[in-house]
């Protein structure tokens, strides 16, 4: 991987996405005693998706704190802890439950720096297991990242790889303001190279995963992998797709996307959140407002989630979000001038 490393790590191992986050949490807790973990069942149970695992054994119950089943209460304690100088990492069991904690996130964490004239900051990290594909139905499968992306004062990231999951977590812990980390549940078991020790992936920097001249596919989270798989098949048909993993949706990396679209003249945005008023709308509008506008040679295409709650039925669940064949077909139509 070509990402800049802040400190030279010693060794690169294959870790799963969940292990990479756990590794990042342990590295941060060893380096900085202000780092504490909070969340429901993150202690002996190890977290709803086994991300915190054995951290309670390694760092003790003072630093790995099981909070009561009240997201509003837990988030409030986390905001307070951050205000006192700690570096809390609050885990939601499912990102869907963040709806219960919106008051603390949106009205408190995001705004206190501004309302108190910069006298305080809220160095809070929140982790949100998100997305569909696990058969968990409408209340446990949403992709709500765009909601948070609409709030000034928050930063919002979506790592697609184990490397980025750890690097963005460590970058978030160095950030003076609240950072929301959305982790797609289908990615937790995916593996990838992860260096030992401390390194960061800069917040606000997209990753150009694949170069190509025919169409720019901007994707997030699990869609990055579907876009890359589609790009391989497109290459066999003579279509070279450029794939950009946004990694951060607020603030957006305007430069990387604009430069790519100016080169390829075609843009497709693939994301799992509901299509309307989402990441695709923002990226499309950004391009329409940019110097890349004059280079567009086809309508912009958005592939997003259906305008419906995620269904329980596995076939319908699949149909409700973009899949690899959808990306393939849309890219073909786009490049071959059928749109």
């Amino acid at each position: 991987m070509s990402m800049p490393l802040r400190e030279t790590p010693t060794e690169v191992r294959e870790l799963s996405y969940a292990e990479a986050i756990r590794d990042g949490l342990a590295v941060a807790m060893e380096r900085d005693e202000r780092v504490i973990l909070m969340g429901e069942d993150i202690g002996v149970y190890g977290g709803a998706f086994q991300v915190s695992g054995d951290l309670v054994q390694r760092f003790g119950e003072d630093r790995v704190v099981d909070t009561p089943i009240s997201e509003l209460g837990g988030a409030g304690i986390a905001v307070g802890a951050a205000l006192t100088g700690l570096r809390p990492v609050y885990e939601f069991q499912f990102s869907d439950f963040a709806t219960l904690a919106m008051e603390q996130i949106v009205n408190q964490a995001a705004k206190l720096r501004f309302m108190l004239g910069g006298a305080v900051s809220v160095p809070l990290v929140m982790r949100f297991p998100a997305g569909s594909g696990t058969g968990a139905a409408a209340q446990h499968s949403q992709s709500l990242e765009a909601w948070f992306g609409h709030v000034p004062g928050l930063k919002v990231c979506q790592a697609a790889t184990p490397y980025d999951a750890k690097g963005l977590l460590l970058a978030a812990l160095e950030d003076p303001d609240p950072v929301m980390l959305f982790e797609h549940k289908l990615l937790y078991k995916t593996k990838g190279p992860v260096p030992e020790g401390h390194y960061t992936v800069p917040i606000g920097q997209a990753h150009l995963c694949r170069r190509g001249g025919d169409v720019t596919i901007v994707a997030t989270a699990v869609m990055v992998h579907r876009a890359l798989a589609a790009a391989d098949k497109l290459a066999e048909e003579g279509i070279e797709a450029e794939v950009i993993d946004l990694r951060t949706i607020r603030p957006l990396d305007r430069k990387t996307v604009v430069e790519s679209v100016a080169k390829t003249s075609r843009l497709m945005v693939v994301y799992e959140g509901v299509k309307t008023l989402g990441i695709g709308a923002e990226v499309s509008a950004m391009i329409a407002e940019s110097e890349a506008f004059d280079y567009l040679d086809a309508p912009i295409v958005r592939l997003g989630g259906a305008e419906a709650p995620i269904p329980y039925n596995p076939d319908l669940e699949k149909a409700a979000v973009p899949q690899e064949p959808d990306i393939l077909e849309a890219a073909r139509s786009l490049v071959r001038g059928r749109l």
């Binding site: 003249s265 506008f293 004059d294 280079y295 567009l296 040679d297 086809a298 059928r338 749109l339």
Partner: peptide
């Protein structure tokens, strides 16, 4: 015409109505 086509035509001093479009 697409923005790209308009830009290219502008840069080449062409008016669009002399160009035949092959798109939808």
């Amino acid at each position: 015409a697409t923005p790209q086509a308009r830009r290219l035509a502008r840069e080449s001093g062409l008016t669009l109505n002399v160009i035949e479009g092959s798109g939808p």
